[in-house]
Structures are given as structure tokens and as C-alpha cells.
């Protein structure tokens, strides 16, 4: 064993850390917008994981204390039943973001499988899949999701996530397909074939790393769309999930509680209405900003020497 080889072994994990954690972070850090987005998302991730452990949830109704203003006791005031809005938001983040995350995974899976199959097989398989993809792309997804949400009674997060992903994979599938198509023609894939490397190796070890940036950025966008759609479904009252879910909160705030009308007399009601909207918009802004910087992070060609 030469000394160099030993060195590689010894420093392997450190290099890995450097390359996969430290450098990407530094690139995000240098890009101001991406860094802000990263911080916002980090904030939400922390709240989702640790929030419910730290912040208690009191679901008791307390009508004497309804529409309370912002105070130390109630960071974002209280709702129409006197429940603490901040507590609701924190506890709802798990389900809201969890559903979006699941939907993101499902959508990405469908898109990658469809796009790769179409690109790799070509011929009739490709044509059929592309007609399907074009249909998915042409018909806007929100009506489809609404239709599905109203047709099936969705009571659990997983089926909601499935409904959210079933019509959302079009653009990513098309992008993956065109990437695969252009890569299939690229010489390094041809070389891999001539070198007798297996198809699985070519797909997962040679092609996949090249389309990862694409997938990662699209994942954020898909998650954003999933949140928009899931909240829309709940806003119309089609999916009765946990009352702390941001979509359910928005539905409560705008329809059931009459908080919108009450806001004319009691401005504090506005805080309650604005809280779930603010949370949704803030999360989405974070995702938009981060996606902007991710492209650079995941593409080694754009990295410095």
C-alpha cells in the first residue's frame, strides 16, 4: 500500500465533508439571497422538528380571551376561540410541511421514473409517455387536484400527498427526459457502454449525479406548489385534517369564525387571519430564494477551482 493510498483512506471522510457539506454551505453563504432562503427554511425545519416539544399546545376554548392582541403570553394573539395562534402554527407546521415534503418525494419519484424511462427506452414507450406528460402539462394541476380532493374523501396526510403529486410531475419529467436524451448522446455515456459498465451503473452512477441539481431545485418548487394546493384544498373545506394545519387555520379564519368581518370592529382579528398566510408566504419565499442558489451549489462545473 502506497502512502498516497493510505492518505486517501485516512482523509476520505474529511474530504467528503469538505466537498458535500462545507463547500455547498460556503457557496450558499456567499450568495446573499440563497443564504436568506436557507436561513428561513432552516428556521422552519427547526420549528417543525423541535417546535412541538418546546411549545405546548392548548386546544381549550377560552371565549373570554378571543382575538387577543400580540403579547408575551400570546406571541401572535389568539383565535376566535381564544386559542394561542402561535401554538397552532408551530404544531401545524409538522403536518403542513410534512405533507408538502411527502408530495415532493412522490412527485419527484414519478417524474424521474417517467422521464428516465421515456428518455432511456425511446420509441413507442417514449411517445406514449410524452403524450401523457403533455396532457399533464397542458391541463393545469389545481383543478385536477381539486377534482380528486372532492371525489375522494381524504382524511390522512399520505393520500392527500398522493393526490397532490398525481398531476404535478409534468415539467420535471419532461426536463429529466430531455436531460437523459442529451446525455445518452454524450460521449461519456457511450464510453461507459463500451467499457462494459452495467446499465444500472450507467443510470445511477453516471446519469443521476448529472441530473441531481435539476431534481433538487425542482423539488423545492414542487414542494411550494404542493403547499399552495394543499392549502387551497383545505381552504375550500375539501380535506378535513387537523385544525392546526395552516390550511385549516386559513379556512377557519376566513369562513367559519367570521374573523374577516369581525376585523372591521376588532383589528386584532386581522392578526389571526394574517398568521397562517404569513407563515405560508414566508416559507415559500425561503424556498424561492434557496432554489436560486442551489443551481450553483450542485453543479461542480460552476464551482471555483
Amino acid at each position: 500500500m502506497t502512502t498516497t493510498a493510505k492518505a486517501v483512506r485516512r482523509h476520505g471522510w474529511r474530504r467528503w465533508l469538505q466537498r458535500n457539506i462545507v463547500e455547498p454551505f460556503l457557496i450558499i453563504y456567499r450568495n446573499r439571497r440563497a443564504f436568506i432562503g436557507f436561513l428561513i427554511l432552516l428556521f422552519f425545519v427547526l420549528i417543525t422538528i423541535f417546535g412541538p416539544m418546546v411549545v405546548p399546545l392548548e386546544l381549550r376554548t377560552d371565549y373570554a380571551n378571543r382575538f387577543a392582541p400580540i403579547s408575551l403570553d400570546h406571541l401572535l394573539g389568539t383565535d376566535y376561540q381564544g386559542r394561542d395562534t402561535f401554538q397552532l402554527l408551530v404544531h401545524g407546521s409538522r403536518e403542513t410541511l410534512g405533507i408538502a415534503f411527502l408530495a415532493g418525494i412522490f412527485t419527484t419519484l414519478i417524474a424521474v421514473v417517467v422521464g428516465m424511462t421515456a428518455g432511456l427506452f425511446g420509441g413507442w414507450v417514449d411517445r406514449i409517455l410524452m403524450v401523457l406528460t403533455n396532457a399533464v402539462l397542458t391541463v393545469p394541476y389545481l383543478p385536477v387536484q381539486l377534482l380528486l380532493g372532492a371525489t375522494f374523501t381524504l382524511r390522512d396526510p399520505i393520500s392527500l400527498a398522493l393526490v397532490l403529486s398525481i398531476w404535478a410531475w409534468g415539467s420535471l419529467a419532461r426536463a429529466v427526459r430531455s436531460q437523459v436524451l442529451s446525455m445518452k448522446e454524450r460521449e461519456f455515456i457511450e464510453a461507459a457502454r463500451v467499457l462494459g459498465l452495467s446499465t444500472t451503473h450507467i443510470i445511477f452512477s453516471e446519469m443521476m449525479p448529472n441530473i441531481m441539481p435539476f431534481i433538487a431545485i425542482n423539488f423545492l418548487t414542487i414542494m411550494r406548489n404542493a403547499i399552495t394546493a394543499s392549502v387551497a384544498l383545505m381552504f375550500l373545506g375539501l380535506v378535513p385534517l387537523d385544525p392546526t394545519n395552516w390550511g385549516m387555520m386559513l379556512n377557519d379564519a376566513t369562513s367559519r369564525s367570521g374573523a374577516v368581518q369581525i376585523s372591521v370592529f376588532n383589528r386584532n382579528a386581522l392578526i389571526y387571519v394574517a398568521a397562517p398566510m404569513g407563515a405560508i408566504v414566508l416559507f415559500q419565499l425561503g424556498a424561492v430564494f434557496l432554489a436560486h442558489g442551489l443551481d450553483e451549489v450542485l453543479d461542480p462545473r460552476l464551482r471555483g477551482e
Partner: peptide, 11 residues
């Protein structure tokens, strides 16, 4: 191949 850049996987 002719194009050595295209012949090597960039990532």
C-alpha cells in the same frame, strides 16, 4: 472520442 470534455462525466 474527439471531445475529451464530453467523453468524461463532468460530475
Amino acid at each position: 472520442h474527439q471531445d475529451s470534455f464530453a467523453a468524461l462525466n463532468p460530475v
